[in-house]
Amino acid sequence: MPKFAANLTMMFNEVPFLDRFAAAAECGFRAVEYLFPYDQPAEVVAERLQRAGLAQALFNMPPGDWTAGERGMAALPGREADFAQALDMAIDYAKVIGTPLLHMMAGVAPAADQTAIKTYRDNLKRAVDRTGEAGIGLVIEPINGRDMPGYFLNDFERAIDFISDMDASHLKLQFDVYHRQILHGDVIMALRQMAPLIGHIQIASVPDRHEPTTGELDDRRIFAAIDAIGYQGYVGCEYRPADGTLEGLGWMARL
């Protein structure tokens, strides 16, 4: 059975962010992830993580102005300096908190625009170089347009192409089962085929993004497939609890 990491952005919203670490540990989680830690000092986040006895799975690089609709800056022409600053901040936080992985968000930009493609590739190369120097892994994630309209990286094969072009062993694919099913389907075959390039996996039910085992997919078979490909990392529980975090955690006990 995979090792699960609680996503503290979506789960345990019943308590303030810094209290979610202890709440996750009390429910049996041994690792956590979240979208962004940057509203808190890195040292404070690290202390809460250590106090709860949790491992850090990953978090995202700063996305730009999230409230204004920005979802990353890597593919945004003219924002290269902002991207570089965000990359430096993410690495600084990663070193203090001790995360093994950073997720680089692409941003909202036309997927076929050549300037956006070049900007993304150049920024990805910068991120690969900087994270490599810091000894931190880097992942990129295809995201479906229903949840994030206009997102630049919206295709798994395209993500694989970008990864292959970089030829860097620490650059991997973030395989989100929820996004994969909405974008392409064929989840288990994709897990098998992409296994060598998968650096992190996330799970949520489809179509409503609630607890695993509550949607259209046979998540138990997907978990068995994750074990079968030899994946050793954490599976991030990036779902929205349907009726409260604690009320929905029975899915893990039933596995």
Results as ranks from 00 to 15, higher is better:
residue 249 L to M: 15
residue 214 T to S: 13
residue 60 N to F: 08
residue 144 N to E: 11
residue 147 D to G: 15
residue 191 L to K: 11
residue 163 I to M: 07
residue 134 A to I: 12
residue 97 I to N: 09
residue 84 A to F: 00
residue 94 A to R: 01
residue 200 H to D: 05
residue 132 G to T: 14
residue 107 G to V: 11
residue 240 R to I: 15
residue 229 I to F: 08
residue 158 R to D: 12
residue 217 L to A: 01
residue 212 P to H: 01
residue 136 I to M: 12
residue 179 H to D: 15
residue 20 R to N: 05
residue 161 D to P: 00
residue 74 A to R: 03
residue 126 R to H: 13
residue 177 V to W: 13
residue 181 Q to P: 08
residue 222 I to Y: 03
residue 163 I to V: 04
residue 161 D to S: 12
residue 125 K to T: 14
residue 100 P to R: 13
residue 184 H to S: 15
residue 69 G to E: 07
residue 185 G to K: 11
residue 222 I to C: 02
residue 24 A to F: 05
residue 146 R to F: 14
residue 67 T to Q: 05
residue 204 A to Q: 05
residue 87 L to C: 07
residue 45 V to Y: 05
residue 228 A to V: 03
residue 180 R to S: 14
residue 152 F to C: 03
residue 136 I to T: 10
residue 153 L to Q: 09
residue 46 A to M: 08
residue 208 D to A: 08
residue 253 A to R: 12
residue 101 L to T: 04
residue 102 L to R: 03
residue 146 R to A: 11
residue 216 E to T: 07
residue 24 A to C: 02
residue 248 G to W: 06
residue 253 A to P: 02
residue 89 M to W: 01
residue 211 E to Y: 04
residue 190 A to K: 11
residue 179 H to K: 12
residue 106 A to L: 09
residue 197 L to E: 14
residue 6 A to S: 06
residue 142 P to K: 14
residue 242 A to N: 14
residue 194 M to H: 13
residue 247 E to V: 04
residue 113 D to Q: 09
residue 250 G to P: 15
residue 102 L to V: 06
residue 232 Q to W: 00
residue 255 L to C: 13
residue 50 Q to N: 13
residue 255 L to P: 03
residue 26 E to C: 01
residue 108 V to S: 07
residue 142 P to M: 13
residue 209 R to P: 04
residue 171 L to F: 08
residue 39 D to I: 06
residue 203 I to A: 11
residue 28 G to H: 01
residue 65 D to V: 04
residue 145 G to A: 05
residue 38 Y to E: 05
residue 11 M to A: 04
residue 26 E to V: 00
residue 87 L to S: 02
residue 84 A to W: 00
residue 216 E to I: 10
residue 228 A to T: 03
residue 70 E to A: 09
residue 225 A to R: 06
residue 29 F to P: 01
residue 90 A to L: 03
residue 130 R to W: 09
residue 198 I to G: 03
residue 241 P to W: 12
residue 104 M to G: 03
residue 113 D to M: 10
residue 254 R to V: 08
residue 222 I to N: 02
